[in-house]
Amino acid sequence: MNPGNPINKFIPPTPRCVPAGSLVFKQGDEAREMFLIEEGELLAFDNKGNEERELFRMGKGSLVGVTSIFEHEPKPHSVKALTEVKLSVVDEACMASLLKVTPIWLLTIIKTIISRTRVAKQHTQVPLFSDPLESLSRFLFLRYGGKPLEMVEIVREYSWQTRVSEESIRGALRSLVRRNMINLVAGENGPDSRIIIEQPMLLDLFVNYLICEKTKRKYPPFQLSPREKSCLEFLNLEKAVLTKEGNDWLKYLQVANPEASVAEIIKFQELGILYRDRDPGRLKLQRIKLEHFLLAIHNEASIKGSCL
């Protein structure tokens, strides 16, 4: 070994000899130490009832108990010596002295790997999404079939699909009630046991708004000027299918708002409220789009949550 090598400062592992048949450690043991097999063979086992069940064997050069020292996990199984075994025991002090002289980049690799492993393990039990309100709203929108929904069934079904706890789901439902997106009424299962959705589309618009917020985009219905809004309200009064040439649309809108200009026509085209018909030069009103815009505008406080 190079005498100038900082590695010389590290505390060496402790040698240990284990006679054949003796236990090295027991399942659940919390001692933070790992072992390097220098000679001999070890057997990993667990106990099923009174019976010992062999899991695997390890020979010279194998490392045992790495996670107990790096992740502080109790030993997942018991290990005993099959033959006389010579071990090098790396305890916390020994490992710490080694990590002290480890280059920072290598230390960061170790830390990153351990942290990513922990995250991967923990996250198998939690939902993949971050916002249950967004997920539940889309679920309810798609699940709603025109009839009241039984709260117990919905909570169970949604929890099964997403692994969100029943408590969190009930919390999210209450939040939707406060936003006037859904109502709870009495049913066979007691008070507030049925979900009524008067305007399912509002739930869908709410999800679109949340997605815009999350991705830092502006939600189009809330970006309209008062003039544009008044034009939309006027368009909604006409229930017939409307197809007009651009100039006629302008004259039409100016009936409601004399200040309406070609800018409104262009804006409504960009938003998909007006679109080019098969007839060249003519624009058709996309009524569903218009209704969605107006629904969002009329329920701005509920969607934004400012009514809470």
Partner: peptide, 17 residues
């Protein structure tokens, strides 16, 4: 520059990840 058992630890942790 490290003990021989150090490298297998790195690979063990990487495989676990």
């Amino acid at each position: 520059r490290f003990p021989t058992w150090f490298e297998p630890i790195l690979h063990f942790l990487a495989q676990r990840l």
